[in-house]
């Protein structure tokens, strides 16, 4: 059992857990695993209400406990490929090290399945609007249609790029209609609209700064002054003009007046004031994350029923 969880590479010693590609044994195994998984879901449905919190807490604790154990358990030193554990303690170290990439894969796969939850939610909400023909249902139809079109076109484009003719498709001259369609939807619409959405914020920043940025308190003055110094130092023309004025007073690089060049002021402000203040905020967030992590791992957070 320990070997199963730790195995990352195929070996001939595990015929029970593996099967040749396309073989009946593999398909039967897949079907059995699926039925067992579905059976587990049915068992969970039958679970008494009192046991629900315990079951969720159990899964959460085991998941988090792996990494906690990995961190606190002695790790292997200079382990070679054919080394075997000499003591039970080393055996656990070996198992933890071998299991780490498997657990990470598991996390990636689970996260992948759960990512579809957001998309499903979007489709569900807009699908309901279209079916019931609620207000502005035509826009929901546009969303659903474009989404399905993208899935079909995107998948077919990917499929054409697999296999021996794939490299030929790096030349536009060899493209089929489906490749043009994917490029049109992805490059022509999705990418450009993505950039446009992000760039709209520039207008709102300008408008908000004009209306709300007022020197009414010490804090606002400090914020404004720092923002002004940062923005001026981002402009190469300004820093060079400023430096020219400083050099006009005394061009020697060791002169005291050189301490007042915009670059020097900016870097001093960054190193001596900006970095420690942001670090202070970071530490506060970090301690909060650590506390929240502990509470989540031990299921101390009381969520809804």
């Amino acid at each position: 059992m320990m070997d199963l969880l730790a195995q990352a590479a195929p070996t001939d010693n595990s015929p029970f857990w593996s099967g040749a590609n396309g073989s009946n044994a593999l398909w039967i195994g897949i079907l059995v695993a699926f039925l067992l998984g579905v059976g587990l879901i049915f068992l969970l449905i039958q679970a008494p209400v009192r046991a629900r919190r315990t079951i969720v807490a159990f899964f959460t604790f085991i998941s988090g406990g792996f990494y906690v154990l990995y961190y606190f358990w002695p790790q292997t030193i200079d382990r070679q490929k054919m080394d075997l554990p000499r003591t039970p303690l080393e055996g656990v170290s070996f198992w933890l090290e071998d299991a780490m990439p498997v657990v990470s894969q598991l996390t990636n796969i689970l996260a992948g399945f759960l990512l579809g939850l957001g998309i499903y939610s979007l489709w569900r909400v807009h699908g309901r609007k279209v079916i019931k023909m609620q207000k502005d249902w035509i826009f929901s139809f546009v969303l659903l249609a474009s989404s399905i079109l993208m899935v079909v076109v995107g998948y077919m484009d990917w499929a054409t790029k697999q296999g021996p003719d794939g490299p030929k498709l790096s030349e536009h001259a060899n493209w089929h209609t489906i490749n043009y369609a994917r490029d049109f939807l992805f490059e022509g619409f999705l990418q450009q609209m993505d950039a446009a959405m992000f760039s709209i914020i520039a207008f709102f920043i300008l408008s908000a700064a004009y209306r709300a940025f007022r020197i009414r308190s010490v804090e606002a003055t400090v914020l404004l002054a720092t923002a002004l110094i940062v923005m001026l130092s981002l402009m190469g023309a300004v820093t060079n003009a400023w430096q020219g004025a400083i050099n006009h007073i005394n061009p020697s690089p060791d002169a005291f007046v050189q301490n007042f060049s915009l670059d020097t002021i900016r870097s001093w402000l960054t190193n001596s004031v900006q970095t420690p203040s942001i670090r202070g905020i970071d530490f506060g967030i970090g301690i909060g994350s650590l506390a929240m992590g502990l509470r989540l791992w031990l299921s101390l957070e009381r969520t809804g029923s």
């Binding site: 990352a8 780490m100 990439p101 990470s104 894969q105 296999g163 021996p164 794939g166």
Partner: peptide, 25 residues
């Protein structure tokens, strides 16, 4: 997950990843 895996065992972290070789496979 992937950042952890990279530090602990890079080979295993990326072992399932494929790219098209010179023949397109």
């Amino acid at each position: 997950a992937i950042s952890n895996s990279i530090t602990n065992n890079f080979r295993t972290a990326f072992q399932d990843k494929k790219d098209k070789n010179l023949q397109g496979t």
